[in-house]
């Protein structure tokens, strides 16, 4: 999953800086044994500018030895007066937005378009029951649109977003049409929000269409999720939330997660995500290699093993 920084003579850059830096990025990802990449769909304009079309960009990815682009993350700022899943008045805008988005990406076959199902910056009470229902409604409508393109609409629950705790997640999925609204498990985000990622996966495994495997060393114990502008960068006591799998002091039990994934017969893609890996002296390249080492040396064996 597309968060990456490396050093350059002009300071830290991401892989989208140039075709040259993209080449280096893709080769590194391929070298450690990843088969595919995910991206953000707000890269669309840049893709047009640099590669001409989404299909061309995927070819560029393939030239470096990767199979394809699997998922895209739909990054939008939610504002109640303009674009917010809990606000029915904005639903027409949201559905329209996805029609445009799916057209833009129709040059390649994606598995999932990933969304944050709820807005952030909620007060102590979180979204009301009605608001969760509205969110479920709009994503079902959006899911109908994406399925016309053979793509799942799947929900990724940030630790700081409106649908973050177990009760909210369960309520949301109780309302959301399972045909159209899928679930994307992010191991670290759930863990930070004090949701057991394995338990929540098992409860909703039938609609899970993807994973972000990453680790964390901290749960949110300061109500950091309320912080402005962004709990991921502003937390009071946690300067860095995310670590690669296999990190010391990691809170996610990946071995248990992997057994569960195997036992439920999941056969889709598992994505590795590094977010802000360069904080506190970290390094994206190293985190990428170490997490792939962990997947190969610890998780692959579990997945290949007989049912527990």
């Amino acid at each position: 999953m597309d968060h990456w920084r490396s050093n350059s003579p002009s300071g830290p850059i991401d892989q989208w800086r140039s075709r040259r830096t993209m080449t280096r990025f893709l080769r590194q990802v391929a070298a450690v044994g990843f088969d595919a990449i995910d991206t953000f769909d707000f890269r669309y304009w840049q893709i047009l500018e640099q590669y001409g079309s989404v299909a061309n960009y995927q070819e560029f990815v393939q030239e470096q030895g990767l199979e394809r682009i699997v998922n895209t993350f739909h990054g939008v700022y939610y504002e109640p007066d303009r674009y917010a899943p809990e606000v029915p008045e904005t639903h027409a805008t949201i559905v329209e937005d996805f029609k445009v988005t799916m057209d833009r990406w129709s040059g390649i076959q994606l598995d999932n378009v990933i969304v944050m199902p709820g807005s952030r910056f909620y007060d102590d009470h979180g979204p009301t029951d009605d608001q969760l229902k509205h969110a479920a409604d709009v994503w079902a409508k959006v899911g109908e649109v994406t399925q016309q393109y053979g793509v799942n609409l799947t929900c990724h629950h940030e630790h700081y977003a409106g649908i973050r705790n177990r009760r909210q997640i369960d309520t949301f999925y109780a309302y959301a049409d399972p045909r159209y609204v899928k679930f994307f498990v992010d191991t670290a985000q759930h863990c930070i929000a004090d949701v057991d990622p394995v338990d929540v996966y098992e409860a909703h495994h039938e609609r899970v269409t993807g994973f972000h495997f990453k680790d964390t060393r901290n749960k949110d114990v300061n109500e950091d999720y309320k912080l402005f502008p962004d709990a991921e960068v502003s937390a009071v006591t946690t300067e860095k939330w995310f670590y690669e799998m296999g990190t010391a002091e990691g809170l996610v039990d990946f071995e248990r997660m992997m057994r569960s994934v195997r036992d439920h017969g999941y056969e889709g893609w598992i994505s590795v995500e590094h977010d802000k890996a360069d904080k506190l002296g970290g390094d994206y390249a190293e985190s990428t290699a170490i997490s792939r080492w962990y997947a190969k040396n610890v998780l692959d064996g579990i997945y290949a093993g007989a049912g527990a």
Binding site: S6, N7, R24, R27, Q28, A30, A31, V32, Q64, G65, D283, A285, E286, T288, A289
Partner: peptide, 12 residues
Amino acid sequence: GNATEVAMLNSW
């Protein structure tokens, strides 16, 4: 430069 990046590019 960055030893990890160079190692990854070498393996590629």
